[in-house]
Computed example of a mutant assay.
Amino acid sequence: MTLPALPRRALLVIDMQQGLFNGARRPYRGDEVLANINALIARAHAAGVPVFAARHVGPAGSPLARDSPLSQLLPELAVDPARDTVFEKTRPSCFFGTGLAERLAGAGIEELVIVGMKTDYCLDTTCRAARDLGFPAVLVADAHTTTDSPVLAANTIIEHHNSTLGGAFVTLVGSADCTFVTA
């Protein structure tokens, strides 16, 4: 018996930036999430799977302006700008005005693995948009994070989003179970 081929995947790393990760409020389990993301990037690289990294940028003069140190990707993040696609976005969705959907379609991507920050904003919006645009998404449950909000603790926000997004919008997996097929 032949097993069905796994879909061609890409890895999308969202907003793992200085200003969000190293801000006044530290992300929940930030170091663990970063380590999990770096392990996924290493697996994607080893399999020849495309890696896309989004940076959220704001208008000139804002804390997240394109040239601000706060808008730069974390130096500890294993994204390789010479190999991977780093792009900017100005909205919560990684798809809005970025050409990401066209790049994924052009590369024959059939499924998108999503990780990064912030669970309750850009990650949530991108997971929902991916499905609407025809890209089934995999959310890595232990490779996304956020900070406490005024009304909810970060761990509760993450648990809520894993529960809400899982099934209806994404396939939920742990980082240890997330695999990439050699391209």
Results as ranks from 00 to 15, higher is better:
Ala168Cys: 14
Asp142Ile: 07
Tyr28Ala: 13
Ala60Gly: 13
Arg83Glu: 01
Ala53Ile: 03
Val86Ile: 13
Ile114Trp: 05
Asp31Glu: 15
Phe87Lys: 07
Val86Phe: 07
Leu40Asp: 02
Cys178Thr: 07
Ile41Trp: 04
Arg29Lys: 09
Leu123Asp: 03
Arg29Pro: 02
Phe169Tyr: 08
Ala65Leu: 08
Ala47Glu: 12
Leu123Met: 13
Arg9Tyr: 05
Thr126Asn: 04
Leu123Gly: 01
Gly116Lys: 12
Pro69Ser: 09
Ala35Thr: 10
Thr156Met: 15
Pro150Leu: 11
Pro92Leu: 03
Asp142Val: 07
Arg55Val: 05
Val181Glu: 13
Ala60Val: 06
Cys127Glu: 05
Val33Cys: 03
Ala141Gly: 05
Arg25Lys: 13
Asn22Glu: 08
Leu11Gln: 00
Ala105Asn: 01
Ala44Val: 06
Ala105Asp: 02
Thr171Asp: 13
Ala78Pro: 01
Leu77Lys: 00
Tyr28Thr: 03
Ala82Ile: 12
Ser175Cys: 06
Thr90His: 04
Gly106Ile: 06
Ala24Glu: 15
Ile41Thr: 04
Ile109Trp: 06
Pro75Leu: 10
Leu11Val: 06
Ser68Leu: 02
Ala46His: 12
Leu73Glu: 04
Ala137Thr: 00
Arg131Gly: 11
Ala10Asp: 00
Ala168Glu: 15
Gly116Leu: 10
Ala143Arg: 03
Thr179Gly: 07
Leu123Arg: 11
Pro50Cys: 13
Glu111Met: 03
Phe135Glu: 03
